[in-house]
Amino acid sequence: MAKDDFNSITGLPEELGIDEDLGRTEQRLTIRIEKRRYDKPVTIVEGFDTDSANLKELASELKRKMATGGTIQDEAIELQGNHRERVGEVLREKGYAVE
């Protein structure tokens, strides 16, 4: 292997794809609930590093798993309803650090 085939930070081969996993664990995500119009709860997930996280893909997966609607606003994922516990579980399974 050439020297360029190794990650400059970890020293591991690039083909392992460890950069994406490291990027997830370094992010500290917060999940909070906000009351919106007519006292409807909205779950908001914030703290993404937009360089390493594909928000559109992650939001789509969360909406599908929670069986709810949602959107991306100001680099945060918003889901209709109170899904704090379940969203935290799903994000931890994907390797994110959730506060």
Rank of each mutant, 00 (worst) to 15 (best):
E57D: 11
E46M: 14
E15C: 15
G23P: 04
L12H: 06
N54F: 15
V98Y: 05
E85L: 11
V45F: 03
V42Y: 02
L12M: 13
T30Q: 12
A53L: 05
E46W: 04
E89T: 00
N82V: 01
Y38E: 13
A76M: 15
E34Q: 08
E61K: 02
Q80R: 07
E99W: 07
I72T: 11
L22S: 10
E93I: 03
T25W: 11
E26V: 15
D5Q: 07
T10P: 11
L79E: 01
I77E: 02
T25K: 15
Q80K: 12
I33G: 15
K40H: 10
R92D: 07
E99Y: 05
R37H: 12
E78Q: 11
L91M: 00
R37L: 11
R24H: 02
D19E: 15
A67E: 13
K35R: 14
E14K: 15
M1Q: 00
I18H: 10
L22D: 05
G69D: 14
D51H: 00
T71A: 14
L62R: 02
E57M: 13
I33P: 11
Q73F: 05
E20F: 05
L55S: 06
E20M: 06
G88P: 02
L79R: 03
K65M: 13
L91N: 04
Q80E: 05
Y38A: 11
V45A: 00
R28T: 05
L12G: 12
Q73A: 15
L29T: 08
E14Y: 11
G47R: 08
I31V: 01
S8M: 10
A2V: 14
D19W: 06
K40E: 08
D5P: 04
Q73P: 02
H83K: 05
T71K: 06
P13L: 09
K3P: 04
E61C: 03
R24F: 09
